[in-house]
Design a protein around this nucleic acid. Structure first.
Lengths: 155, 155
DNA sequence: TATAGCATTTACGTAAACGTAAGTGGTGCG
DNA sequence: CGCACCACTTACGTTTACGTAAATGCTATA
C-alpha cells in the first residue's frame, strides 16, 4: 500500500480537491485522461486544435467543468463519426448566454449529412460482406478439391 | 522481328489490337484505366507496389491478360476491404502450374479476419447511427423550443 | 513543323488523429 | 539529496492510397 498521491487531509499535494476562485472543480490532465479513457497526448492535441482550453496554474493544465463538458461532446462527436473540424465548428458556435440557434442548425445539418454517410457506409459494408462470403465459398470449395477425396472417411 | 506495336494500314493509331509474340492481347495504360475505372496514377502506383508488372515497349507499359486478371483481383480485394499489402501477399502466392493451397489458405485466413472486422464495423456504424439519431432528436426538440410558439400561425 | 494526345519520370502533398522520442521542470517523500 | 511521478514542450513519424504538379518524350496528323 504505497498510499502515494493522497494527501493527509488537504495538503493539495498532487491531485484532488483543487478548486477555482469560483468554486469550480479543477482536474489535472492525468485525471481527465483516466476518467475519459484518452491519453494525455489526446487532450493536448485537442487543445492544440482549439477544441479545449483549460486554465493554467503555471504550466499545469486545469480542467473546469466546462472543459469536461466540452470533452464529453467531443468524444460523442467522434463516436458519431464527426471529424474534429466539424466538432470544433459546432462547439465554436456555443453561446453560454444566448440562443444557440445557429449552433443547433449547423449541428442538425451536419448530422443529416453524417447520417447519410453512415448509411452509405453501412450499405458498402453489407456489400463487402456479401462479396467476401462469395469469395470464401469459392476458396473453401477449391481447398476441398485439393483434398484427394476423403473416401468415406470415419464412420 | 520486333514488330514495333503498330500495324500499317488500320489507322487506329494510338490504341487497339496490339498483340504479343505469344498472341496475347496487349493493352496500354490508358485503355486499362478506362476499362476498369481507375486512374493512370493508380495503375502505376500498383506497379510501384509490386502488384502489377506489365511488359514494356520501351517506356510504354503493355498489359497482358494476366495483368488484367490481377487487376481485377486487386480491385475485388479492395472492394472487400483488404489492404493492398494483403492483396499483394495473396497474389504473390499464386503459382500458375502448381497447387495454390498456401495461397488459398492465406486467403481464407485473411478473409475470416476481414469478415470479423467488417462485422465489427457494421456494429459500430449501427451504434453510431443510433446515437446520431438520439442527438438529432434532441437538437430538433431544442430548435422547436426556440420557436416562440407558432400560435396558430398563418391562416 | 507544329500541335494534339498519350505516355513517361521524380517527388512532394494530402487527410486524421494522434504516437513517440527527447529533453526539461516542479514536488513531496524516504 | 535524489528518486519517483506527473507534467511540459517541440517536433518528427505513422498509416493508406493515391493526387498533383513539373518537366519531358514519342508518334501521328494537319
Amino acid at each position: 500500500m504505497t498510499m502515494k498521491l493522497i494527501k493527509a487531509d488537504n495538503t493539495e499535494a498532487t491531485t484532488a480537491g483543487i478548486t477555482d476562485e469560483m468554486g469550480d472543480e479543477l482536474a489535472r490532465i492525468g485525471e481527465m485522461a483516466k476518467k475519459y479513457g484518452v491519453t494525455l497526448r489526446t487532450l493536448r492535441f485537442y487543445e492544440d486544435k482549439g477544441l479545449l482550453s483549460p486554465q493554467r496554474d503555471g504550466n499545469t493544465r486545469l480542467y473546469t467543468h466546462r472543459e469536461e463538458t466540452r470533452l464529453k461532446l467531443i468524444l460523442l462527436g467522434r463516436k458519431i463519426g464527426f471529424s474534429l473540424r466539424d466538432v470544433k465548428q459546432m462547439l465554436d458556435l456555443y453561446e453560454p448566454a444566448g440562443s444557440n440557434v445557429k449552433q443547433l442548425r449547423l449541428t442538425l445539418d451536419k448530422s443529416e449529412k453524417q447520417l447519410a454517410r453512415l448509411n452509405k457506409q453501412r450499405q458498402a459494408i453489407d456489400e463487402a460482406i456479401g462479396e467476401l462470403n462469395d469469395v470464401m465459398k469459392v476458396v473453401r470449395t477449391k481447398l476441398d478439391e485439393q483434398r484427394p477425396m476423403p473416401v468415406a472417411a470415419n464412420g
